[in-house]
Structure formats: C-alpha cells, structure tokens
C-alpha cells in the first residue's frame, strides 16, 4: 500500500520535473533566437526538412478532406434544399477547425517525429556533447533553428491545407454534384469573416506549431541516449503533441468562437 502511494508520488513528481525541465529548455531555445536570426541559412536548411517535405502530405490530405466534406455536406444539405450553402460549410469547417488541427496532427506525425529521432540520435551518438566540447551551445546551434522553422512552417502549411481543401470541395460540389459555381463562392464570401474566421485559424495554427515543435524538440533533447530511449521519445512526441493539440484546440475554440 505504502509502496503504491510512493509510486504515485514519484510519478507525479516526475511529470512536474519534466514540465520544469521543458520550460527551462524552451527558455534556453528562445533566448538564442537573436543569434540564429542573424544566420538565416541555418533556418533555411531546417525549413526545407520541416516545411518543404511536409507539403506533399498536407496537400494530398487537404484535397481528400475537402472532397469528403463536399460529398458529405452535399448529402446532408440537399435534404434541406440548401446545397447553395455548401461553400460556407466546407470553408468554415476547414478554416476554423480542420485546417489547423489536421495540419497540426500531420505535422506532429511527419515533422515532429523526424525532429525527435534526429536530435535523439545526435544525443545517442554524442554529437551534442561533442559540440559542447567545442564550446558551441548545441541548443542554440541545433535546436533554435529547428524551433523557428517549425514555428514558421505551421501557419503556411495550415493555409495551404485550407486552400487545397476549399478547392477540393469545389471540385466535388461544383464539378461533380452540380452546385452553382457562383453560389459556392459568393455564399462563402458573405459568411466567412476575415478577422473572425481566417485570422483565428491562423492564430490556432501558430499555437499548434509552437506546441508541436516544442514537444518534439524537447523529447529528442531529453531522450535516454539508447536506441530504445530514442524510439520511446519518438512515440511520446506523436502521442503527447496530438493530445496537446486537440486539448488546446478546445480551449482556443471556446475562447474564439464560444462566447464564454
């Protein structure tokens, strides 16, 4: 019995310890920002591996999700004779929710896991300690550029996702099911507000990018330097960032659209 309570206490302490360590880590990463901004080539290399390589999966899934929304929305809306509102439905669900959230999840799975594995392996092969030996701060040289790249990529990826999704909905709704082209766009433009919908969607994607990159980098940096440790860290990245994104999304949605 006492042992169980001890275990519980230890588990709780470990969580707080990790949270504290990750906050210090974030602080360390952010304070290095100025030095890295002075050397933009470091960020460009990371933008390529974090952003450019994620574009394909984002575009393909955005297209399919938009097409499914068009198909499902049409079936339901035509029951009420409101097929004309298909554009609003597709655009609102993409811009407000699906764009940022699905992009965040895909980003955590595609880019986040790669970041964790890369940094975890750097740690396991003692490249990070090697840098410290040469008086190079590994956090500022390795972590900060990756953090900035993730932070910049996410809103761009989410915007791409939403755009492709809206076009996918147009493809199915207008091209296949015969919704009027003018109604699709004009109803959308009448109902979607730039400040309220699109700006809030961009804010969401920035926040998710921050969370997903932070978790991925910290898990990699904090990994136990063995092959098992790195594999566990990679799993942790995907699980924790997916949960964090969904949880934070609820809070953000309640703040932005909930009128609470």
């Amino acid at each position: 019995m006492v042992e169980k309570v001890q275990q519980l206490g230890q588990f709780t302490l470990e969580i707080f310890e990790k949270l504290g360590r990750s906050t210090f880590f974030l602080w360390h990463t952010l304070t290095g920002m100025m030095e890295v901004l002075a050397r933009p080539r470091l960020i460009i290399a990371q933008l390529h591996s974090v952003g450019v390589r994620t574009v394909l999966i984002i575009i393909v899934s955005g297209l399919f999700i938009g097409m499914v929304l068009g198909l499902q929305g049409y079936t339901t809306l035509s029951d009420f004779g409101a097929e004309q509102s298909l554009g609003v439905m597709v655009a609102a669900s993409l811009v407000r929710e699906l764009g940022p959230v699905v992009t965040g999840l895909l980003f955590a799975g595609r880019a986040g896991s790669a970041l964790t594995a890369e940094i975890g392996l750097m740690k396991a092969t003692e490249q990070l300690s090697g840098m410290e030996m040469m008086a190079v701060d590994p956090v500022r040289r390795i972590i900060t550029p990756r953090f900035l790249a993730g932070f910049i990529s996410m809103p761009l990826l989410a915007a791409l996702f939403s755009m492709v999704g809206v076009l996918g909905g147009h493809l199915v709704g207008v091209g296949l099911l015969g919704v009027d082209d003018g109604a699709y766009w004009s109803q959308m433009q009448a109902k979607i507000d730039f400040n309220e919908d699109i700006l809030n969607g961009i804010i969401k994607s920035v926040v998710f990018g921050f969370i997903a990159t932070w978790i991925a980098l910290f898990e990699g940096y904090d990994a136990i330097p063995t092959s098992e440790g790195v594999s566990r860290a990679t799993t942790n990245t995907v699980v924790i960032s997916s949960l964090a994104i969904l949880g934070v999304d609820f809070i953000l949605t309640a703040l932005m659209f909930g009128d609470i």
């Binding site: 952003g51 761009l156 791409l160 755009m163 979607i192």
Partner: peptide, 27 residues
C-alpha cells in the same frame, strides 16, 4: 534547397492571400 524553401514560403503566402480574398469577405 533554397529554391524549394522559397517556393514553399511563396505557396504559403499565396494560400493566405487566397483565403483573404477568395474565401472571406475581405475582397
């Protein structure tokens, strides 16, 4: 690499612009 990153950033900005002008009421 540089060209790809440039294209990526440009595509993202085009997407945001598209959403502002074509999807929302800003246009």
């Amino acid at each position: 690499t540089e060209i790809m990153v440039g294209l990526f950033v440009a595509a993202g900005i085009v997407a945001i612009f598209f959403m502002a002008m074509q999807v929302s009421n800003l246009g």
